[in-house]
C-alpha cells in the first residue's frame, strides 16, 4: 500500500467533471483507491463518493492505493490532479 498527499490546484475544485475524469482514470487500474480528506474516507473509484467530498481549490487530499499496479496508478492520478484536470469549468454564456 502506498500513500501520497496532494493539493487540488484547479479553481473549480473537484466538481462533477473533474471527478468523472478521475474516477474513470482510477477505474482502469486494479488497485483499490481511497481518498482521505479532513477525516472522511471515500472510494476513489466512486464518483458519488468523490463528489460528496466537495473538495475546493486548495483542499488537501491523501491518496491511498493498494494493489499490484499501485505505483503506476498513483502516478497517473497525481498527474491528473496536478494538471488541474485539463478541463475544469462549467460553461455559461450570455
Amino acid at each position: 500500500m502506498i500513500k501520497k498527499n496532494v493539493t487540488i490546484v484547479n479553481d473549480a475544485g473537484l466538481h462533477a467533471r473533474p471527478a468523472a475524469a478521475m474516477v474513470k482514470l482510477a477505474s482502469k487500474y486494479e488497485s483499490d483507491f481511497y481518498i482521505h480528506m479532513y477525516g472522511y474516507k471515500v472510494n476513489g473509484k466512486s464518483i458519488l463518493g468523490v463528489m460528496t467530498l466537495a473538495a475546493e481549490k486548495g483542499a488537501e487530499l491523501e491518496l491511498e492505493l493498494d494493489g499490484e499496479d499501485e505505483e503506476e496508478a498513483l502516478e497517473a492520478i497525481v498527474e491528473l490532479i496536478d494538471s488541474g484536470f485539463g478541463e475544469v469549468y462549467e460553461e455559461d454564456e450570455q
Binding site: A16, R17, A19, A20, V23, K24, S27, V42, N43, K45, S46, I47, L48, G49, E87
Partner: peptide
C-alpha cells in the same frame, strides 16, 4: 458528451 460521460460514471459507481 461531458454530461452523459458523468452520468455513465454514476451508473457504474461501485459504491452505489
Amino acid at each position: 458528451e461531458e454530461l452523459v460521460r458523468m452520468q455513465v460514471e454514476v451508473i457504474k459507481d461501485p459504491e452505489l
